[in-house]
């Protein structure tokens, strides 16, 4: 076996390699579609209009239309139009998106007073943060209590179970009526989208705590409030942390809908604005940034989790 295959076959490297591969594969497909004209390229980007009245330089027309016009001009003996195969405007090539990614942070926005890309992002992150914090302040304790005390669980959970089927965006108009048109209703949508799942999931996690631990604590003289603070909470903490990570991911999925409510703001405002001017490279760049922030923060939290709960080794894979 060659040294290279040995190097590649080490289990950790194999894992890292597959992880990188899982990102490279879709990018490779994107490259193939973008750079190999025979793969798709259903349109023609006009270089020279020739004799066609309505053709303009930089315009995209369907391949069949171009072929028709080409034949037509040839017949009439007028100058021939020329162009190169191209993908539709809504599918920019990777390098264009990469350039937009860079220029989004370096060049000022086209309109005066419009926020920079990073300002839009920061606004979105704040919406998520406050929505998630407000939901957690009530949801986590309520979940733990509902999981610890059967009667409280039965009192609260059926209604919450019902409520979580109501789609959060449905409350958009109501949230605007109550909270105005700025950040209030956006945060409210995130809270509504997160809170009800949160209570149920955390109550369930609490119920899964090893019963022997509670019983041991009770025989050692622990009860009531102290039992919850000293045994239930630390006992479920690693799993609670995982739950919160997943819930934070869900909160992100509510972001775009939330930001459309009232006056559009944040990264959503940026995306819709860029799409309006057909700057689809910027649109893709913004979408990818959302992914990077979400995925990156989750990786960070997973790593932090392993540091925070050293006793949890082997029981859980982050």
């Amino acid at each position: 076996m060659s040294a290279l295959t040995l190097w590649l076959n080490a289990p950790q490297r194999r894992r890292a390699l597959l992880t990188v591969g899982s990102f490279l594969l879709p990018i490779l497909v994107w490259c193939l579609v973008s750079y190999l004209p025979f793969v798709w390229h259903p349109q023609v980007l006009i270089d020279e209009p020739g004799g066609v009245d309505y053709f303009q330089t930089g315009m995209r027309v369907d391949r069949s239309d171009f072929a028709d016009q080409l034949a037509d001009m040839a017949q009439q003996g007028l100058p021939l139009p020329s162009g190169s195969p191209a993908n539709p405007i809504y599918l920019p090539a990777p390098h264009e998106v990469a350039k937009a990614f860079y220029s989004g942070f370096t060049s000022p926005p086209e309109q005066k007073n419009a926020p920079w890309l990073h300002e839009s992002l920061w606004h979105s992150i704040q919406i998520i943060f406050w929505g998630f914090v407000i939901s957690s302040i009530v949801g986590v304790p309520l979940g733990i209590l509902a999981g610890s005390y059967a009667s409280l669980g039965r009192l609260s959970e059926p209604f919450i179970e019902f409520f979580r089927y109501l789609p959060a965006p449905a409350f958009g108009a109501l949230a605007v009526a109550v909270l105005g048109i700025y950040d209030g209703p956006k945060i409210a949508i995130i809270v509504i989208g997160t809170f009800f799942q949160q209570v149920l999931i955390i109550a369930n996690t609490t119920r899964k705590l090893e019963a022997t631990l509670i019983e041991a604590a009770r025989t050692l003289g622990s009860r009531g409030w102290r039992l919850i603070a000293r045994v239930v909470v630390p006992g479920i903490l690693p799993n609670l942390y995982q739950d919160q990570r997943i819930l934070l991911g869900w909160a992100w999925t509510y972001l775009i809908v939330a930001e459309l409510i009232g006056t559009s703001s944040g990264i959503t405002w940026y995306i819709t604005q860029q799409a309006r001017y057909q700057h689809f490279d910027n649109v893709y760049a913004a979408i990818i940034i959302i992914g990077i922030i979400g995925f990156g923060s989750d990786l960070l939290l997973a790593r932090l989790g392993r540091k925070l709960f050293p006793w949890n080794t082997g029981r859980e894979k982050g």
Partner: peptide, 20 residues
Amino acid sequence: NGPGRDRGMVFQGYSLFPWL
């Protein structure tokens, strides 16, 4: 009446608090 410190208990399963 209920569990109390006057009766210590050792369980079969591992009942130690893993976080301590």
